[in-house]
Design a protein around this nucleic acid. Sequence first.
RNA 1: GCCAGAGUAGCUCAGUGGUAGAGCAGAGGACUCAUAAGCCUUUGGUCGCCGGUUCAAUCCCGGCCUCUGGCACCA
Length: 514
Amino acid sequence: MKSFYITTAIDYVNGSPHLGHAYEKVLTDVIARFRRQMGDKVHFLTGVDEHGQKVQASAKKRGIPPQQFCDEVSAEFRALLPKLNISNDDFIRTTDERHKKVVRQVLQQLFEKGEIYKAEYRGFYSTRQEQFLQEKDRNPDGTWPELFGEVTEIVEANYFFKLKQYQEWLVEFLTKNENFIFPAFRQKQVVEFLKEPLNDLCISRPRERLEWGIPLPFDDGYVTYVWFDALLNYYSAVADLPGVWPATYHVIGKDILVPPHAVYWPIMLHAANIPLPQGIIAHGWWLQRGAKMSKSTGNALNPLDLVTEFGADAFRYFLIREMNVGQDSDFTRDQFLVRYNSELANNLGNLVNRTLNMTTRFAAGIVPAAEAIEDAEREVQTQWAKTRDEVIVLNEGFQFHAALERTMQFVTATNAYIERRAPWKLGKSTEANDQALLRTSLATMAEALRLAVALMQHVIPSTTTKINAVLGYTPGADWRAELDWSAKLSGAKVAEALVLFPRPAPPEKALAKV
RNA sequence: GCCAGAGUAGCUCAGUGGUAGAGCAGAGGACUCAUAAGCCUUUGGUCGCCGGUUCAAUCCCGGCCUCUGGCACCA
């Protein structure tokens, strides 16, 4: 069984989860579920990043220990996962002892190998903001913004990782592995970035300035800062699980591709003699242009509210259907409702309901066996085979939006098939041939529905389970074996009706006047 | 400024060197099993602008314009 280890970025706990966090979890989950279905042995990791200045400051502000602060916010992020039906196998926190142990090991190893050295760092420091400033922080006239208060140039000793000496190696690696980063244009960006010389990477902060972190194993006057702490979670989480590392894919936002994941991370691993991941998937951002958001008028859209209102599956469906992985997309309630109504409710949901209804009305709720296979049936079956093959390829290439589109086309074709056969007319006939056609049409629509839904299982798992249940069907363990046109449903007892995606009530205009 | 992505029907987007496509929205129709859903038909586009290559360009080349994002020791 092929091992497939996939991760999300870990979320920084200095704030509450929002749409971007949710999307990354859903996207990664869809990939993980799809690979499981394809027979891979999947390990799916997500988690939180809990160290650093901002967390330390936020905890101090509230007068509680940093760990307590982390416990509280982390719980919020963790609670998001079941809400979105995320099938992660593990959840790592950078304050976990298992993580700290590995971080210390790797740092120690690199230090002994001479990959880390101590040097003085000179820079402009803002006491008020407790941070070093950069040239780009300056006002156009060269002064420092008021926000920073008094700015002084200071010298501070820190530890540096010899990033620069691996630049050439990384360029060569990316040349040899041209599919390391998905989508491809992101890899080009990285290569462009690497045309400028790298500097060595400062990886420590003196404890006087930052207490909340993992102490350097070779100098406990310092803690390690950001990179060796956060990035190493992918490795530390599975360090004790044989056969899982290296990761197959890291799923991240485009904002943390360059330089952290595409430059620091491969070099860190290479320097530590740890195998590199197979690839990185960099997704885009959800934008909220257009939508007028105003808290004062109470019409602010929190996308996560849609989960409560319409359910996790509808939310997942929208995110995956609407976003071309790697590109940006707009998130509006109107667009959500368009997908929800036209695709989930009208096309799919209604097919479920009418299938159940007709089977109940014309066959006493028992799916008949198909008898008279004619052109109409053959065409549906042909289209199914084509749809299935295309959709699998699209999913393998992360083209989930297109895969869902094709699947919905098949659902539409099934609806059209029903119109063509018009079972409600056949039901009024006593001709033996019409009765045979009636039974055939009921069998065909039910089977088409079963199959269509199997193709959406990784995106809308709860819905798939519900539909199988009302069809009186329990799928086998081998997903791919479920994708052949069959007579599996013959004799199944179906439910009488099921409204899966109820149409939302129209806006209550009259209510506003009251 | 540099780099990348994008500019195609009202909206969201596919697309190929050879008479422009889909979904949604709009219009019309036949039907009634169904969540007033579904099905069929249909209106609609100088394919950002200007040149070039070519028998032929939306698709190739050059230039320009507009929008978005990134530009490091910052999560």
